[in-house]
């Protein structure tokens, strides 16, 4: 019984790097830095910048959120301290998911690239014309070529 119990305990498990899980203080520091990054993210929105600044802001936002993502996964989810196998498992999903999302966004015939700044005015309101279910024939493609 006790033998199994010790297996569950991280401090004694040879597979875990770093020899033990972090202290509460460490968690608090991580949490505070997460709050700071989130505040930064929101803050990025507000200073008035030119068109060129848009790209800067997009890149900054992406970098910041990747950072947050990495911090939570590495420390809150213990991946940094845990067996590399688990990192591998998660990485398989993340890599394929990221690649697929990127490929999908680029291969779709988007009206505009989803990560590009849009021109204004954006969407002139068009007449709403949802067809009644039985009026099949009126249901035509409304998109101008």
């Amino acid at each position: 019984m006790s033998q199994h119990a010790s297996d569950l305990d991280f401090e004694h498990d040879g597979h875990h790097q770093g020899g033990g899980h972090p202290s509460v203080l460490f968690y608090n520091i991580i949490a505070i830095s997460l709050f700071v990054v989130t505040a930064l993210e929101v803050g990025v929105l507000y200073p008035p910048l030119s068109e060129a600044g848009t790209y800067f802001r997009v890149i900054l936002l992406i970098v910041l959120s990747i950072g947050k993502f990495a911090i939570v996964v590495a420390f809150f989810m213990h991946l940094f301290f845990d067996a590399p196998l688990l990192t591998f498992l998660f990485a398989v999903g993340m890599v394929i998911a990221t690649g697929t999302v990127a490929a999908l966004i680029n291969v779709m015939p988007a009206a505009e690239h989803p990560l590009q700044p849009r021109g204004k005015p954006k969407h002139p309101p068009v007449e709403s014309a949802t067809p009644a279910p039985h009026a099949l024939l009126e249901w035509k493609n409304q998109r101008p070529s």
């Binding site: 498992l89 998660f90 999903g93 394929i96 998911a97 999302v101 988007a110 990560l115 954006k122």
Partner: peptide, 24 residues
């Protein structure tokens, strides 16, 4: 969780792909 990455990946890409496609 790896599986869920694909799950939310599909949803998020749906959202991003349809950005700017709304007609109303």
């Amino acid at each position: 969780l790896a599986s869920d990455c694909m799950f939310f990946g599909s949803l998020i890409s749906t959202y991003l792909v349809y950005r700017g496609h709304s007609t109303d």
